[in-house]
Design a protein around this nucleic acid. Structure first.
Lengths: 112, 112
DNA sequence: CAAAGCCGCTCTGAAAAACAGAGCGATCCC
DNA sequence: GGGATCGCTCTGTTTTTCAGAGCGGCTTTG
């Protein structure tokens, strides 16, 4: 059977692609936090607030693979790991700022 | 015990608020799809693609409660339900477009 | 020197979310 | 009547997220 041609419109593939990353919990907040400057793993965990080690580790792997954040290991001792935004990640910053403005203007900050 | 004052930076509360909605699977795509015009429940399900009835129903309730989408029941028979963006939702459209552009320019469209 | 703490993770097991699919009353088409 | 569409809801399974413990390597404290 052919694909349904009766649908009047479809979700835009580009937006869908964007939300394959941003539509996961924490990713937006991680990127936003790193927008203020590079951070180590545990500093990032504290800055984001409420995320667990396991999930943060997982998200950072994904974001690194998508080339949105960079993982840099400063050889030690002591070895320290620093996460920062790549250029691609940095290009997201103004959009996140706009999203923040939209949220404060259009969303009730005290959700049910 | 006092809150930790040693953190150099924190995630912006406004961005965090935005992602309490957009950081959930499907929400971005639902809003984007409705941006092209109002749709009935089943047309929306087809347009978004891959979402189940139960989850769509759930997301629409949340988005309606957040006053991002409006649910309008046209009295029948046949009763038909139409979902559309509110003004707040519509104000998100240009941002979603920008996110789409960012994604096409900075993300590999063939994920892992 | 030993105990204690931070670092960046990984592992475990349990709770929450998303999923596919069936079902349902109503209405419409042949 | 038989079949399909509509807007859901319910059931049970899979996936995701979670808190918390653990770990090796290092530093700081006493």
């Amino acid at each position: 059977m052919e694909p349904d041609r009766t649908a009047l419109h479809q979700c835009d593939a580009a937006v869908s692609l964007a939300f394959s990353i941003l539509g996961k919990r924490w990713n937006g907040m991680i990127i936003d936090t790193l927008g203020n400057g590079p951070l180590a793993f545990s500093a990032l965990r504290r800055a984001v607030g409420g995320i667990s080690d396991a999930v943060l580790s997982d998200r950072l792997s994904e974001l690194a693979e998508a080339a949105i954040v960079a993982r840099e290991v400063a050889p030690g001792p002591p070895v320290s790991v620093t996460y920062s935004l790549t250029d691609a990640g940095a290009r997201l910053r103004p959009l996140l700022t706009q999203l923040g403005e939209w949220a404060t203007q259009n969303l009730d900050s005290a959700p049910h």
